[in-house]
Computed example of a mutant assay.
Amino acid sequence: MWFPTIRTGSGSDVFTEQLVNGLNKQGVLAEISWLPHHAEYLPWLVHKPQKPDWANIVHINSWLHPKFLPDNIPIITNVHLCVQDKALLPYKSMAQKIYHQLWITPIERHNIKQANKVIAVSHYTAKQVISFFNINNVGVIYNGIDTEIFTPSQIPKAKRPFRILFAGNHSKRKGFDLLPEIMQQLGADFELYYTGNREDASYNLPKNMYALPRLNYPLEMAKAYQDADALLFPTRLEGFGLVVAEAMACGLPVVVANSSALPELVEHNLSGLLCKKDDVHSFVVNIKKLQSDKQLQLTLSRNSSARIQTQFNMNNMIENYIKIYKLLLNEKH
């Protein structure tokens, strides 16, 4: 299996590396040919990598420019987030709207049309792809979580204000703009640690919000989950919700928006708390509810880690992709 892949510094890189490592451990020969980030928008400046002679399937991200595709070989195209989703429009800049419409959409249309199999990372994403590109052959394979790294901590937490974690960029899509008001209403008994740059002048941050230093993935990220009391993730739209799944694997109770793919991960009051999207009051009420109810914290912690271990583990993902590979090779012959 050959993966010509643009390195973007995002969750799609993590997905590709974990899939390839998992395939190799299962005895399936797989290799990544990394392309620089500018191959996404300046493909004519990047040399086309040579397909290995042994490769009999090519596996790509839907954003890969067709220039980098080999001929006469089965193609699997992964869609991690459908940027054509109308629900995403309010959170795009004008530049993003133009870029997605005039550059990314034609590339994705070509790659989806050429693919022998299209795989989305959630049923929500699959539904958007089917609707926009007017196709039916979209399968769903959830991203897998490495539960040997993302695992509950056995170390008791020190007495302190209730510690909340936000992991993600500071975009409006991720709901970072809601965090200052949520934390202002929660007050001094709560503190929020977030990934990213404290010097973000776009927001007036209250004193109970603290920037974390740059975290090395995955070990330092796993420790950040383990050190927290809850994950707060008021995102407007996720193709899957990797941060939420990793936090759940660590037994961290999650308080997230009831939007896009997240209800596929989180069962309300069983493995997390779902809040009305964009509703600051809903997030505040649910976080206070969680903070005041130790039994609820324990229940959500146990259920969330068990849910990831049984339904969203790495082995499930690897085995499901191997089934697709075998199916395509059988069809080829």
Rank of each mutant, 00 (worst) to 15 (best):
A120G: 01
D71Y: 14
Y124M: 01
L69D: 15
R109A: 14
I73N: 09
I119R: 07
L186R: 01
K174S: 07
H123A: 12
L89M: 14
H123Y: 08
L102N: 05
V129S: 14
G168N: 05
N116V: 07
H100R: 02
Y91H: 09
Q114V: 12
Q101G: 10
K86P: 06
K113G: 15
M94Y: 11
Q128Y: 08
K92Q: 14
H80W: 13
E148P: 08
K86S: 06
F166P: 05
F150P: 07
T105W: 14
K86F: 02
L88P: 10
N116H: 09
G144H: 04
S153E: 09
Q96S: 15
V121C: 07
K159R: 04
A188S: 13
L81W: 13
T125H: 08
I155M: 12
G144Q: 06
L81P: 13
G187R: 00
R163P: 01
A167G: 10
L89K: 14
N116G: 02
M94C: 05
F162D: 00
K92G: 06
F68C: 09
S122G: 05
L89E: 13
M94V: 12
S93I: 11
I149R: 08
W103A: 03
Y142R: 07
V118K: 01
S131A: 09
Q114W: 09
I145R: 04
P161E: 01
N78T: 15
I145V: 04
T147I: 15
N169P: 05
H170W: 03
F162M: 00
H170Y: 01
N136M: 13
A95M: 08
A167H: 11
I76R: 07
S93V: 12
R173I: 03
V83T: 02
P106G: 10
V138S: 10
I112H: 08
Q154P: 02
